[in-house]
Amino acid sequence: MSGNGNAAATAEENSPKMRVIRVGTRKSQLARIQTDSVVATLKASYPGLQFEIIAMSTTGDKILDTALSKIGEKSLFTKELEHALEKNEVDLVVHSLKDLPTVLPPGFTIGAICKRENPHDAVVFHPKFVGKTLETLPEKSVVGTSSLRRAAQLQRKFPHLEFRSIRGNLNTRLRKLDEQQEFSAIILATAGLQRMGWHNRVGQILHPEECMYAVGQGALGVEVRAKDQDILDLVGVLHDPETLLRCIAERAFLRHLEGGCSVPVAVHTAMKDGQLYLTGGVWSLDGSDSIQETMQATIHVPAQHEDGPEDDPQLVGITARNIPRGPQLAAQNLGISLANLLLSKGAKNILDVARQLNDAH
Rank of each mutant, 00 (worst) to 15 (best):
H83Q: 14
R246P: 06
Q194V: 13
H305Y: 14
T102M: 07
L206T: 05
G274Y: 01
Q275L: 02
A40M: 13
P127G: 07
K128I: 12
L49M: 12
W283S: 13
G24S: 06
K62V: 12
C114D: 11
N200W: 12
L177H: 03
L134V: 09
I63S: 10
K176V: 11
D311M: 14
R167L: 08
E89S: 13
G216W: 03
P302I: 02
A360Q: 01
V353S: 09
L161S: 06
I113S: 03
L30C: 10
F51M: 09
G197R: 09
L193K: 00
V38H: 04
E73T: 14
L154A: 06
E223H: 06
E223K: 01
Q296K: 12
L81K: 03
W198T: 05
P324S: 11
R149W: 02
N118V: 12
R164Q: 09
S344Q: 06
I187K: 01
M271G: 13
I71F: 11
A191K: 04
Y213N: 10
E162S: 05
P159L: 09
V38L: 08
E250R: 01
W198V: 10
R22H: 15
V39D: 03
N349H: 06
D352N: 06
G107Y: 02
V301H: 03
T145V: 10
W283N: 12
W283G: 08
Q314H: 15
A270N: 04
D286F: 06
F253D: 02
K272N: 14
R150S: 05
Q34M: 08
L238V: 08
R225S: 08
Q275C: 02
A347V: 03
D228T: 03
L49T: 14
T66M: 10
T109N: 05
R22Y: 09
G281P: 02
E179D: 09
P159Q: 11
K43P: 03
P106S: 13
K27D: 14
K272G: 01
E73R: 11
I350S: 04
V263D: 04
H199A: 10
S284C: 10
E310N: 00
D286A: 05
D99G: 03
G107R: 09
F125G: 02
G260D: 15
V20F: 09
S141D: 08
H239W: 00
N200R: 03
L134M: 10
A31M: 00
H300A: 02
K128F: 07
Q34T: 05
E82F: 15
F253T: 04
E89C: 08
S344G: 14
T319W: 01
I299E: 11
M56F: 15
K176S: 10
G24K: 00
D312V: 10
F77Y: 08
S69E: 12
M196G: 09
S344M: 05
L134E: 04
L92W: 02
N88A: 10
N118R: 11
S28I: 01
C211L: 10
G308C: 10
A122N: 10
A266T: 06
A55H: 12
G317Q: 01
D91Q: 06
W283E: 01
T279K: 04
T78E: 02
Q180H: 14
F51D: 07
P313R: 14
S96W: 00
N349C: 05
T172D: 03
A152C: 11
L137W: 02
D311W: 08
S284T: 14
D65C: 05
G221M: 00
I318S: 10
P208F: 14
G281S: 15
L177Q: 05
E52F: 11
